[in-house]
Design a protein around this nucleic acid. Structure first.
Lengths: 135, 135
DNA sequence: TAAATTACTTGTACTTTGCAAGTAATTTTA
DNA sequence: TAAAATTACTTGCAAAGTACAAGTAATTTA
């Protein structure tokens, strides 16, 4: 993941080198749905990422300019991770993944409302969602 | 990749288990842009996938119902790989990846025309592109 | 001031990947 | 029609990545 040599000039290939593994998009998902997270928040996710992998992925995403890390304003033992504009711009992609998955896998209860909203007005959902992340 | 145990019920996580690695979406990209491919066609792609990885990914994608494999009608030493409806439905995702990458990486000359089309009328581009793949 | 939190790092075993070489079934060429 | 070439793989092995368990340093809470 912390690879430096480009495989090709292809936009798909370049993208995959930034977030194309089993874990990165889950970290990005958490940041999009929960807004801002600490290391411990990521560890609580149901997929149970190994702690060393999480540390490695957070560093990779930071190096790729997709997330930033800053000191928690209320507790100096914590750090806050948040999406950069580059990360926020992955929002439409996450929406499309949800739409694809909806067709082929059972949708968990807590995502049904979101999918309903997307179906009502996808453009509005994306616009509002991204605006909230920029606050 | 040929993992069977679900990490969670999350649509993003389920999707990543089907195509969330460094190579699968490149195979899908080739099938979308070239229409139908043989093993050798995939090997010619600029990213230079290792032959054992390609064989493994093709099998995984087939097992996940994203591609099919059939005998080449004109040459019995070859096989034709093509996208299923499930695979074709990844088209909007591939479009969004291209749009994201356009913002952050140099766009290769041969993709500029496509991106122009997408910007003119994204919905139409997706509709037409998917229709062509179904022919 | 001791115990708990938080965000990691380290060690080790296991799995996956990447590269090189080899093989079986055709198909083409001489 | 026999030898060479094509095609789609498989196999072996070293290197890299992943998973799990345990440990640590800097605060913060009790």
């Amino acid at each position: 993941m912390a690879n430096t040599k480009k495989r090709s000039e292809c936009p798909i290939s370049n993208s995959l080198e930034a977030w194309g593994d089993k874990w990165s998009l889950l970290i990005i998902r958490d940041l999009m749905f929960k807004g801002v997270c600490t290391y411990g928040d990521f560890m609580k996710s149901p997929e149970k990422i190994a702690t060393n992998i999480l540390a490695s992925r957070l560093l990779d995403l930071e190096e790729n300019g997709i997330i930033t890390k800053e000191i928690h304003p209320e507790n100096r033992t914590k750090f806050l991770y948040k999406l950069t504009e580059k990360g926020i711009n992955l929002f439409p992609l996450i929406v499309e993944i949800n739409l694809w998955a909806e067709k082929y896998y059972p949708v968990p209860e807590e995502r049904k409302e979101m999918l309903e909203e997307i179906h009502k007005d996808k453009e509005a959902f994306i616009k509002n969602g991204m605006a909230k992340l920029r606050e």
